[in-house]
Design a protein around this nucleic acid. Structure first.
Length: 614
DNA sequence: AAAAAAG
């Protein structure tokens, strides 16, 4: 297996001026045995056999960010995962090389092709659960009482053989009626993780028919699922509909950019579960077409994005100022791949006595994704991209079954890059927020079905979208925050498949050099020396996005352990269970319990977090 | 200084 576009590229005269020679990756051999992308038919086959199309929403695969475990580690040096983590840091050589792991997983992918999910990728997955009275995880769907019809859908229609790690832990928590903050990469089965308990709960409730006022109806959904983009909203809706098949549970969708009337018609037919984006939802509430008064379940997908600056007021309005029942009288579940501390703090306003769950690999958010960073000046990016795409194409890594997703910074550059790519013979589509909804959906469709194997996108496509067969994510422009980077590269390497992520880096990106470098290290991949140098000379930022290890992956409530005895935070004291999932011995026996709220225990936490709580 | 989300 040869993977050599680096050497090829550098041999070209047109590119010899950059990157400067000293920016060359120190060890070209590192790239010489790239394991290649998955045989992209795997998924297609899997889905065909399951009788599904390829547009199904994310439910499998992926890893979550394991960041933050190191803090726990500092505090509990005796725990299993901590030891493991230490070993990793101190002696990386004792571990299999990336390519060995890739090869192993590649083989496993093929074996697992029929189930559509590569469970071997979840070996030894670390799990952290904090909160009071944590319900025990389950190992099979059979152990969960979801109701007969739903069980049948899961088993016979969706062909789910066993729950993914996030599902194993989140479903029991949700069924116990507990609020939940869950950290796991999109595509790891989060949609199902919150849909199953909601559907099951709705089945036990009397459906509420729309109430007719003097003239028009008002819909009273029992469950609300919010998503930050329209496309993700559609994806969740499709997924939920499938789960609800023949259960009698009614799902409806409401998002902007599309005609209101059909959405209203479907609301009129009654709705149990409403999947929506914030704008259209608020609009419909204010027009008194929807009331949230009967909401029993609230789920926020990509919750950290939803609570991000600029978005948060809208969400807060929906959750706190409109007619939504207060926390405690509804069940709230937040899901995301990244959960920065600041966001956790905001989110805790929506939750009551919640359980924090983090499922991911220690020290690696992305170990199935081979990350590469190359130094490319802005003015040379197009040339570089052209050569890169030519090489990938020559190797069969670009085409109908090996899609390439190119992220750019602005809507304008998305259009212009799309145009240029088409002109130079690479069929491409573009998606961004200035296109009308129809164009957005058309672009996504032509990408998914391989008509345009290249999609140029802004961050509208960075989160949650489950696009099978994405073999390569190119960060043509790096994002300004590392969370976005994590989400973007998470569009590949899904369902336990391997993937490649290439980033074009230059001076303008120095603020996230450190974060990328750390992310790569934690994924056991070698960041180039020049990147590490950037990381060192630009390590000052206190911004949580640029700082180190603040993705979440760890319950921010744990940070105030030292104050537990003052009584003020008693509500937040909980038990933490950290252990390896898919361990050889029964999971229950693997629980190693420690009390994070017990005070003392050696601090070592980000002071930012602790002081924030005072 | 960007993107997203209502029309």
């Amino acid at each position: 297996m040869s993977y050599s576009y680096f050497s090829d590229a550098y041999a070209e005269p047109s590119r010899q001026q950059y990157p400067p020679p000293n920016y060359l990756p120190p060890n070209p051999q590192h790239f010489s045995d790239h394991p290649g992308r998955y045989n992209s038919n795997d998924r297609a086959r899997a889905w065909t056999s399951a009788g599904r199309g390829s547009t199904t929403a994310g439910r499998f695969g992926g890893r979550s960010t394991g960041r933050g475990f190191e803090h726990t580690n500092a505090r509990n040096p005796n725990q299993n995962y901590s030891q493991n983590y230490n070993q990793k840091v101190q002696n990386p050589n004792q571990y299999q090389t990336i390519s060995e792991r890739f090869t192993k997983l590649k083989l496993a992918e093929e074996e697992n092709a029929t189930t559509g999910i590569n469970f071997d990728a979840y070996e030894d997955i670390p799990v952290e659960i904090t909160g009071t009275d944590v319900p025990k995880p389950v190992n099979t769907f059979a152990e969960i009482d979801l109701g007969e019809v739903l069980n049948d859908n899961i088993k016979n229609r969706c062909k789910y053989v066993k729950p993914t790690p996030i599902q194993r832990h989140a479903i029991p928590v949700a069924l116990a009626g507990r609020d939940l903050m869950a950290c796991a990469q999109t595509g790891s089965g989060k949609t199902a993780a919150f849909c199953f308990p909601i559907i099951s709960g709705v089945l036990k409730t009397t459906s509420s028919a729309p109430v007719y006022g003097r003239r028009e109806m008002v819909a009273y959904p029992l469950a609300l699922v919010l998503s930050p983009t329209r496309e993700l909203c559609c994806q969740i809706f499709e997924e939920a509909k499938k789960f609800c098949f023949e259960t009698g549970v009614k799902v409806a969708v409401a998002y902007g950019g599309a005609p209101v009337y059909p959405q209203l018609k479907s609301l009129e037919r009654g709705v149990d579960i409403l999947v929506a984006t914030p704008g259209r939802l608020t609009d419909l509430i204010e027009r008194s077409r929807i009331s949230l008064a009967k909401i029993k379940y609230l789920a926020l997908d990509e919750a950290d994005r939803m609570l991000d600056m600029g978005f948060e007021p809208q969400i807060r309005k929906i959750v706190e100022r409109l007619d939504m029942p207060s926390r405690g009288s509804r069940q709230t579940m937040l899901f995301s791949a990244t959960f920065p501390t600041e966001i956790q703090r905001l989110a805790s306003d929506f939750l009551k006595d919640y359980i924090f769950l983090s499922v991911g690999r220690v020290g690696s958010s992305t170990d199935l994704i081979q990350q590469k960073v190359v130094f490319v000046e802005d003015s040379e990016k197009r040339d570089y991209l052209r050569n890169l795409l030519h090489d990938e194409k020559a190797k069969g890594n670009l085409g109908k079954n090996a899609l390439t997703l190119v992220f750019v910074e602005t809507k304008r550059s998305a259009d212009s890059l799309e145009n240029w790519l088409c002109r130079i013979g690479f069929p491409a589509a573009a998606i961004h927020g200035d296109k009308v909804q129809f164009e957005r959906e058309r672009a996504l469709r032509s990408f998914k079905n391989g008509v345009t194997p290249i999609l140029v996108a802004t961050d509208v496509a960075s989160r949650g979208l489950d696009i099978p067969r994405v073999a390569h994510v190119i960060n043509f422009d790096l994002p300004r925050d590392i969370d976005s980077y994590v989400h973007r590269i998470g569009r590949t390497g899904r369902a336990g498949k391997s993937g490649l992520a290439t980033a074009f880096f230059n001076d303008k990106n120095s603020s996230i050099a450190k974060a990328i470098s750390e992310l790569m290290k934690e994924a056991n991949q070698d960041a180039p020396d020049w990147l590490n140098q950037y990381a060192e000379s630009h390590s000052s930022s206190n911004d949580y996005r640029h700082g180190s290890s603040k993705f979440g992956g760890r319950d921010f409530r744990s940070g105030n352990g030292n104050n537990a005895d003052d009584g003020g935070n008693a509500d937040y004291r909980g038990t933490s269970n950290s252990y390896y999932d898919y361990a050889p011995s029964p999971v229950a026996a693997e629980f190693s319990t420690s009390n994070y709220g017990g005070g003392g225990g050696g601090g070592g936490y980000e002071s930012v977090v602790a002081s924030g709580w005072e």
